[in-house]
């Protein structure tokens, strides 16, 4: 049996989790909610994170548009994903939820805008 102590990152509570792995199954204790149980399992089997960053945008009322991966992606893909994000360039206008990069770094997860950026005539 293997046991791991984790801090849940699902919400600000930061519950201390204990994940037991036995006979191919996992049990999570210490969680205050269902999301915590799910996080505990995932974290020991294949940890994932949501990545947030910014993408350069042309012709808008902001020069950067904040973005995030629509869902969590495998932890070991974070830097591959960042590489694509850092290279990306989009044009205004952009609305919240617009896909900025489809299937980022082969994760199958798209990167979407998290702010509206309006088009300006002269930027």
């Amino acid at each position: 049996m293997e046991e791991r102590e984790l801090i849940c990152i699902c919400c600000p509570l930061g519950c201390p989790l204990t994940v037991r792995m036995e006979n191919g199954g996992t049990t999570v204790t210490g969680n205050s909610c269902g999301r915590g149980a799910e996080y505990g399992k995932k974290e020991v089997l294949s940890p994932t994170r949501v990545v947030t960053s910014t993408v350069s945008i042309k012709g808008g009322d902001f020069v950067m548009v904040p973005v995030k991966t629509r869902e969590d992606i495998p932890k070991d893909k974070i830097f591959d994903c960042m590489e694509e994000i850092r290279k990306a360039l989009v044009s205004a206008p952009v609305s919240i939820g617009d896909v900025i990069i489809a299937d980022c770094a082969g994760t199958g997860v798209s990167v979407i805008a998290t702010r509206n950026v309006r088009k300006t005539e002269d930027i």
Binding site: L6, I7, I9, C11, G14, R49
Partner: peptide, 12 residues
């Protein structure tokens, strides 16, 4: 800071 931030910002 929040514990979750130590995990996902530093430990990671």
């Amino acid at each position: 800071g929040l514990k979750r931030n130590i995990v996902q910002c530093l430990d990671d």
